[in-house]
Amino acid sequence: MTELTNVRSERVKVTRSLAGRSARSRAGRFLVEGPQGVREAVRFAPGQVRDIYFTRDSYERYTEIVVESELAGMVTHVASEEVLNLMSPDAQGVLAVLDLPAAQDPAQHLEVLLDAGPRLVAVLSNVRDPGNAGAVIRAADAAGADLVVLTSESVDIHSPKVVRSTAGSLFHLPVVTGLPLTEIVAALSRRGLTTLAADGVGTHDLDDLLDTAGSATDGVPDLSQPSAWIFGNEAWGLREEERALADAVVRVPIRGKAESLNLATAATVCLYASSRAQR
């Protein structure tokens, strides 16, 4: 296979530009960086994969990705380390260019997904840090959630850092973006999901809810039932009007001297609590 070595080529320029949102929108493509993300894209989103780039070393090291992608008829390339680093400094030797998913009306898309009767949903409201957004998507996948929804004020899920932070989970479960929180909560409530706002000022303690799961009394949310967790902005959490939309506001107990939990950590704790209760 001929090695790509021209650092001034149009291919390098165009691929590198996909780190920017406007370039992604114009091209209809996005980047997946690193062997884990690319491996999951090849396995779970093969129809979106346009090109895969390896350094010579990574081509020989990640043979399972090479074999799976080439057997599926995907286009693979070997590039010099200098070329790949220019395309993406975070590629770790493996980089893929994918087509963005076909545009859908987000409200209709959400309704179709809710028709399937999800039992656990993660909602991100005004979450703008790409690392946190990606980590929550990954946690939702690990906890067995059926769906992740991001409000229109949240980060672009196809930015390289979000994609990288999901470690491939972006390709494992549906993610809906582009709706206001009011519409999201209304749609969830119509389908009978209990909406739970995760916030340090919550009137309900998460441990108490785990203790009563399956036998909760009136006025106490039952974690064993289908539910959607709402997580807020990294800096200020959920605003009062956002908390008011939920059926209940739940706090994660802090037993030590920490002032609070990181958003992704708190989301992981909450999602796993529901996952355990629903078992």
Rank of each mutant, 00 (worst) to 15 (best):
A140D: 00
D129R: 13
T63R: 15
R190Q: 04
D208Y: 09
V148G: 07
L18R: 05
F231D: 06
R164K: 15
G168N: 08
G178Y: 03
V78G: 01
V155W: 11
R255H: 10
R279L: 10
R8S: 14
G232M: 08
W236P: 00
Y59E: 08
R24K: 12
R279F: 03
A145Y: 00
L71N: 09
T203H: 14
V148N: 07
V201I: 13
G192L: 11
G20H: 14
G20W: 13
I65S: 00
E241F: 03
G168A: 11
D222L: 01
A273K: 07
A139Y: 07
R39M: 07
Q108I: 05
G28S: 06
R239T: 07
A116H: 01
P174A: 08
S80G: 03
M1T: 10
E259D: 13
T217H: 06
R191C: 05
E241M: 00
L98S: 08
R279M: 12
V121R: 02
A135L: 09
L170A: 07
D129M: 08
A103L: 09
S169Q: 03
P253R: 03
S165T: 08
R164T: 12
A266K: 11
Y59C: 12
T182A: 07
V155S: 05
L238D: 05
N6A: 14
D115Q: 12
R119I: 00
I52D: 04
A139W: 06
T2Y: 00
